[in-house]
């Protein structure tokens, strides 16, 4: 771009030191036993995600997809200003419940992650963890232009520009911010995608796991969690 400062080079040399609680250490127990602890290896599971195949029968899979489309449980995780636009969906005017859409407080029970607006690097880390803890099949909707190309935060040093570099996005809803009507229309479109059996984001994530991880780690410098948060 024309207004880019040619002389500025970002610091790519400095490594962020591992946090103190994540460093390997030896602990002496009260009874004199010496224990070696490596938090990153001991506390977490290192397994990579695997591709879950569809049901063998197309009829069964179609039936399941119908159920998935009509029971969208959204993770109540607002990342930016878009979270404000999601609230009216529950209220009498828009009432998303009548389409089988409801909000779940924990990622374990949710199967739709809505990235509602700009995503700072700090929040991206949490969003990745939340996404990985959700159970397959899971869907991601990018809400607002910030998730598409950075939106008004296009030159910010701390917000990502393209959400699909870091998470497999099934659907974008454009706007800054999109109104609840647009959101509803987007969710209806997502339902159609699920019904067609094309919303296989979790499998895409597992197949291109290395690419996604490389992208994520290139912006999150203090990576102090396992590669896949089970």
């Amino acid at each position: 771009m024309k207004d880019m400062d040619k002389s500025f080079r970002k610091d790519t040399e400095t490594e962020f030191p591992l946090r103190e609680e994540m460093r390997p250490r030896t602990v002496t127990a009260p009874d004199g036993q010496v224990i070696e602890i490596d938090p990153l290896r001991d506390y977490f599971c290192e397994e990579a995600p695997k591709v879950h195949r569809k049901s063998y029968s197309a009829i069964v899979e179609g039936f399941y997809n119908w159920a998935r489309a009509n029971s969208l449980w959204i993770l109540g995780f607002g990342t930016g200003c878009g979270a404000i636009e999601m609230r009216p969906l529950m209220t009498p005017r828009f009432d998303a419940y009548r389409y089988g859409i409801q909000w779940r407080p924990t990622p374990r029970q949710a199967n739709l992650l809505i990235i509602s607006g700009y995503l700072s690097v700090k929040t991206l880390k949490r969003a990745i963890r939340a996404y990985e803890q959700m159970q397959q099949p899971k869907f991601v909707v990018g809400l607002g232009s910030c998730t598409i190309n950075g939106g008004m935060y296009w030159d910010s040093y701390n917000t990502i520009k393209r959400l699909d570099d870091y998470l497999p996005v099934d659907l974008y809803i454009a706007g800054c911010m999109p109104r609840p009507e647009a959101l509803l229309a987007g969710l209806m479109e997502l339902k159609k995608i699920i019904r067609r059996g094309e919303a296989e984001g979790a499998n895409k994530y597992a197949e291109n796991f290395d690419w996604y991880k490389a992208n994520q780690k290139s912006v999150i410098k203090d990576w102090d969690m396992p590669d896949y948060s089970w």
Binding site: H52, F63, Y64, A67, R68, N70, S71, T91, P92, D95, Y97, R98, G100, Q102, N111, Q135, Q136, P137
Partner: peptide, 21 residues
């Protein structure tokens, strides 16, 4: 509000059983 469809509980149940992992 209008409220959930009357058969929503069945769909939710089926969806949860249909989860792959």
């Amino acid at each position: 509000r209008y409220g959930i469809p009357i058969w929503q509980n069945y769909i939710d149940l089926l969806k949860n059983i249909a989860l792959r992992s």
